[in-house]
Design a protein around this nucleic acid. Structure first.
Lengths: 221, 221
DNA sequence: CGCTTCTTTGAATTTCGTCAAAAGGCGTGG
DNA sequence: CCACGCCTTTTGACGAAATTCAAAGAAGCG
């Protein structure tokens, strides 16, 4: 887990000792957007969808969290409100620390704070790239990028191609790529017919990463 | 300066002692996208435009930096490459610290690391909101939000209304709001004719914040 | 005063969202 | 085990918003 990387062995014990572990069933809400932020979370197994809603109905999936990733942590350092909601995708195992415990851990092992900066910095960079894509690229390319990113984050190679571990509805794909589920559906269907992709239920398999990559690179001109 | 908030008085001296100060003329490039990241920066006076470019020609203004804000700092904690370029808007006074100096300061005063987390966390939240806007709102609303955010960040009240301190080209507005300069120009011209806005050269004055706010809230339906 | 950069504006084109509706799947309960 | 109902997906047609193409006008700088 990146959050606790480069710590002396003794620290790992402390981290484990103050952690609270919970097993959750699918579609369980861990926290709501706007809730007072009092705990920092990390995921051991399964998946968590982080969704932000606007005053109007607008929703986006801010991020899908995979095993080993932290979430809901930054709010402890800013305004103490979670800026988005967190819901499990499928069954999940979640660990968490109270604010007091986390700050105590950081005081004893300042490296944790540096790790947090690294993690948040990397996410900031990713979101900024997403902004650029949304600003300058057309829907098809963005969907292609979305799939490639998910393949890197949660892809599992099989004979058929790369399977994305998260169960994904068309709506999820749409809310990640920044479009409507209708457009997302059309695009995925087209790719499926072109043999680039296969979908069984809510599992996506990328059959031809190179084909998707070409689209992501805008070479369909 | 938020970066050095809540430090003991003695620390401020250390911070100042290891800082390098430079006066720069307008449109000076401080660092390029992809450059090895070896210094952390903060702005004392003026403005800095942070722009990210994609492999294709696509460009976005990631952020405008005002006095008191840090920039180019996170890269020291991730992959040691600046993810975007920084260019002065108008004349500017910039301070910077080498990576070694900054890490030494943090070791002596861990509060600085917590401050960094807070700053980066807040920016992450802002960028995520921008993603939601780009995904779900139409151009006019996004431009309205852009102006309101700039007014908060760098607005100065006068009899005529709120003046935005940064000199802004239509292209800048477009690259912040995620549209083309043509569309941005049309929208701003329309607002100017409606009396919501005034622009003299590259200075924008918001005459009727409430009107812009209405548009930002989507009440033009 | 000439040149470059920025801004405006019109017209044509296109992408994408919206509206509408049907078909498919999955789980639950009878 | 089957049937019903809900959630998800697909698909078509239409229209509007915004980009693209094109070109002229304005403004700042040297």
């Amino acid at each position: 887990m990146e959050l606790f990387l480069d710590l002396p062995p003794v620290a790992i014990g402390e981290v484990a000792a103050s952690a609270r572990v919970r097993r959750l069933t699918r579609e369980t809400r861990i926290f709501d957007q706007g809730d007072p932020a009092d705990r920092a979370y990390a995921l051991l197994d399964g998946g968590v969808r982080i969704t932000q809603s606007g005053g109007d109905g607008g929703q986006v999936v801010v991020r899908l969290i995979g095993p080993g990733e932290m979430f809901g942590t930054v709010a402890l350092f800013t305004d103490h409100r979670y800026p988005a909601e967190a819901v499990t995708i499928g069954d999940a195992v979640v660990v968490s620390w109270s604010e007091i415990e986390l700050l105590a851990l950081i005081r004893r092992h300042p490296q944790i704070a540096l790790n947090v900066i690294g993690i948040v910095g990397r996410r900031l960079k990713e979101v900024q790239e997403r902004v650029r894509e949304l600003s300058t690229q057309r829907v098809e390319r963005r969907v292609a990028h979305t799939l490639l990113r998910l393949a890197v984050q949660a892809g599992h190679n099989t004979v058929d191609g790369t399977v994305i571990e998260f169960p994904l509805r068309r709506k999820d794909v749409a809310e990640i790529a920044g479009t409507t589920l209708h457009t997302a559906s059309r695009i995925l269907t087209a790719w499926e017919q072109a043999g680039l992709l296969a979908s069984r239920g809510q599992r996506l398999t990328i059959r031809k990463p190179s084909g998707i990559q070409r689209i992501a690179d805008g070479l369909t001109l």
